[in-house]
């Protein structure tokens, strides 16, 4: 049963990632080829904080904040470019992220971070937690789509294609 639980946990995390990508590509109609960098930024911060002894549940919002902050900066810079160049800059962001990481010894270099402090949850409850987060984000996406913001997103998509 252990294998199924790990598989489900990984799946839930992947679905979370896919949902976040969907916000950009489907809702807003913009290409993003560097999305993994933001997942990585969050993951690296959470891992570093956990190793430093910060409680698991506190590492999550901090990781989200940093990834969001970097995303805002990237987003503001990317406002200047469109279409093919937007795809290139987003891809560039991910290369830049890897490039910075791989050369930093204190971030584990090419081997990454090991010996990360666990969440203190059992495997099953950790799985349930990730599934819960996924459902939460899904609900947020559905709400977002129907909200005023969702219509703005749709408008962005339409304007992007007609441009």
């Amino acid at each position: 049963m252990n294998y199924e639980i790990s598989l489900m946990t990984t799946m839930a995390i992947s679905v979370l990632f896919a949902l976040s990508l969907n916000l950009i590509t489907d809702f807003c109609g913009q290409i993003s080829l560097g999305h993994a960098a933001f997942l990585g930024i969050g993951a690296y911060l959470a891992a570093m904080l956990a190793k430093a002894g910060v409680p698991f549940l506190l590492t999550l919002p901090l990781a989200m904040l940093l990834a969001g902050a970097v995303g805002t900066v990237v987003g503001l810079t990317n406002l200047r470019v469109r279409a093919d160049f937007l795809a290139i800059t987003t891809m560039g962001m991910s290369f830049l992220f890897f490039g910075i990481l791989l050369q930093r010894e204190w971030l584990g270099g090419e081997l990454g971070i090991s010996g990360i402090t666990g969440s203190n949850m059992s495997k099953l409850s950790y799985m349930l937690f990730t599934v819960f987060c996924t459902i939460l984000v899904m609900t947020l996406c559905i709400y977002l789509r129907r909200s005023r913001m969702g219509r703005v997103f749709n408008g962005t998509a339409l304007a992007g294609y007609s441009a």
Binding site: T77, R80, V81, R82, F85, I88, T89, M91, G92, M93, F95, L96, F98, G99, I100, L102, Q103
Partner: peptide
């Protein structure tokens, strides 16, 4: 080379150029 790897340097420059000249 000690700060960034090869690809990252190329892309960093590319992004910088696109910020200044978005049209290429």
């Amino acid at each position: 080379g000690k700060l960034l790897d090869r690809n990252a340097i190329a892309f960093a420059f590319l992004i910088l150029v696109l910020m200044v000249r978005p049209q290429g």
